[in-house]
Design a protein around this nucleic acid. Sequence first.
DNA 1: ACCTGAACACCGTTCAAGT
DNA 2: ACCTGAACACCGTTCAAGT
Lengths: 170, 170
Amino acid sequence: MELADGWGLDAVTMQGVAGRIGVTPMALYRLVASKADLLDGLVELFLTELPTPADDLPQDEQLAAMADGLRQVARRHPAVTPLLLQRPATTPGSKQVRQAVYGRLAAAGVDADKIARVERLMSTAILGFLASEAGGRLSHHPRRVLDEDFLALQRMLGAFIADQSTGEGR
Amino acid sequence: MELADGWGLDAVTMQGVAGRIGVTPMALYRLVASKADLLDGLVELFLTELPTPADDLPQDEQLAAMADGLRQVARRHPAVTPLLLQRPATTPGSKQVRQAVYGRLAAAGVDADKIARVERLMSTAILGFLASEAGGRLSHHPRRVLDEDFLALQRMLGAFIADQSTGEGR
DNA sequence: ACCTGAACACCGTTCAAGT
DNA sequence: ACCTGAACACCGTTCAAGT
């Protein structure tokens, strides 16, 4: 992760990582099955850094806090962020985060049969934005513009959640 | 592009492309400045395949048609799709597509000062979904589920557009 | 059990040389 | 003008060999 943060994802090579921990490249194959496996480990590491919002916050603020936390981790690890969209969302870390979102969507009043879809669209939209931001697709815009974009994105998702809920709003 | 479609993005190497057109790798440097330049060409090629919806459709259907067209091209070129999020949206192809969306958002009644932001959030959410679909993050779901996801995404964006407009809806 | 040396088949890129 | 040969410094990965 230090290698990715400091020198970009291209610096994360078997030889690079091996050198970083003072060992030959072949020794790494005792720890990971392949380079893809190593990159999956990077994604898991990313996910473990996500903060868990306090339980006593209102539900919509908890979801907003999770989105903000995701963006902060993405800002710390921009080289790793695009990987989140490219690996199956079935690893332990992914599942844990998803379950946390499920719980908060349920508490927010989203119909049980819509929760999974709402979670997919939310994560997809947020990760798409963060990958764009980290990958450089939007980096020609000043930070302030992107901050407001992210706020607008959160409001859009908030409206969508309300729309998929019964018992409040419409 | 044929190489990417048939064998994945990893098969798009200087040597692979050179072999494909019957030339040595070094000869490619007369046509592209670097491998990154070659990949940018792939993205441009992708964008030129986007269909232009008929002008006589209602505005919301034109936007839906553009989204559908984007998804169809993404399905033809899944290996290239993730690249769209990773390159600056400043190439000729990107600008042309963006201007087309601007025009349709204006016609849909979106306030002039909000058009650029709405376009960024729309493209970000759609590309995020298509990259997830193409990259395998969601590929453990059956096609039917993803089709419905995409429809829900379009409805969410439609509601967002209406929300950013004056003179109709709320 | 854990690591290494040597090797293999690749990469992107350069530079001088050929026609 | 356009392409090639030879070379360089890298890749990921394997396998047999060392301790």
